[in-house]
Design a protein around this nucleic acid. Structure first.
Lengths: 162, 162
DNA sequence: ACCAAAACCGACCTCTTCGGTAGGATTTCG
DNA sequence: CGAAATCCTACCGAAGAGGTCGGTTTTGGT
């Protein structure tokens, strides 16, 4: 399995937040109920998202979470990375801040590290897929196709849930 | 981490086999020494590769393993899949033999499963990267460019790669 | 015939992560 | 105040990762 349910749940959480029109914070509890996920577990996940600066929180009664920036500006690589940690296909694959890729077993430096070539390609594939998908896109996709075919379709419309 | 060292070690093993010119089988022991990997562990990995039809074995003295087909015809998706199992980005992501993708939590079928869209893209990225890389390519890449430096520091005397 | 080199096989072991629970603090609104 | 919420830390069972070990079987060489 490439990713764990951390990514799955976390993304679902983000989508749930992105689905909300205004800037009123949503409680984790309602997210947990909507997605039928354990609240206590979501707490851990949302903490990572908050530390990564993807969501902001309001404490106290009627508090909750909301997106730190518009969904169009949130790409999924940031989300997944916040939840799962560095997106590296392999243990021996550390990316320095400058973007250089290191490989643990580079003693035999005269012959190129063949697996590095492979994993680099894989990583590119994953990163491109993630970075090329915005939260807005997922929210849009998951929208429960509104009843009327007539337009006037804005995302400022009223929520469906109770 | 996307993949475990199973894939890393297994790919290194395959490369080692692919580097050998003739059809003489290579013992796991020599592979283990060349790559500095534990022999007993490699046994488990090579068993998977054999069951997947990627390598063939000869038992007894002077036995060993060799590629089941030319390295040009071995793509890395088959190798990685043999070692790591189904390449799925997420638990709830089962691909039927016909290529249809199932999703576990499809109760809310009227609104599209947004994460499925995301994971499908990721999987495509990975699969394309893996399927687009042949073993021959990696062998070529890992060849210790012998002609460039005319000094004999090489471990393999005459490697007519490619 | 025997021995050594190899593939084969399965049980075991330790460590980390995953997925989740529990219990409590702390903050804020009504 | 008290309910609703975030926040924080610790723990826990199951599963997988990454091996190790001991043994069996097959085979070539002498």
């Amino acid at each position: 399995m490439l990713f764990s349910t951390k990514a799955e749940y976390g993304v679902r959480l983000m989508i749930e937040l992105g689905r909300q029109p205004g800037s009123t914070p949503i409680s984790l509890n309602s997210v947990a109920e909507a997605e039928r996920l354990p609240l206590s577990y979501l707490e851990h996940l949302v903490a990572k998202l908050r530390k990564a600066g993807l969501v902001t929180s309001t404490r106290g009664a009627h508090g909750g979470y909301r997106l730190a920036k518009p969904a169009e500006e949130i790409t999924m690589d940031a989300v997944v990375q916040a939840l799962e940690g560095q997106i590296a296909p392999m243990e021996c694959f550390h990316e320095t801040p400058e973007g250089r890729v290191l490989c643990s077993h580079e003693e035999d430096a005269d012959r190129g590290c063949a697996t590095k070539l492979l994993w680099t390609r894989v990583q590119n594939g994953v990163t491109k897929a993630l970075a090329g998908t915005t939260l807005a896109e997922l929210v849009e996709f998951s929208a429960p196709h509104p009843r009327a075919e007539s337009h006037g379709r804005s995302k400022a419309t009223v929520v469906h849930a109770a």
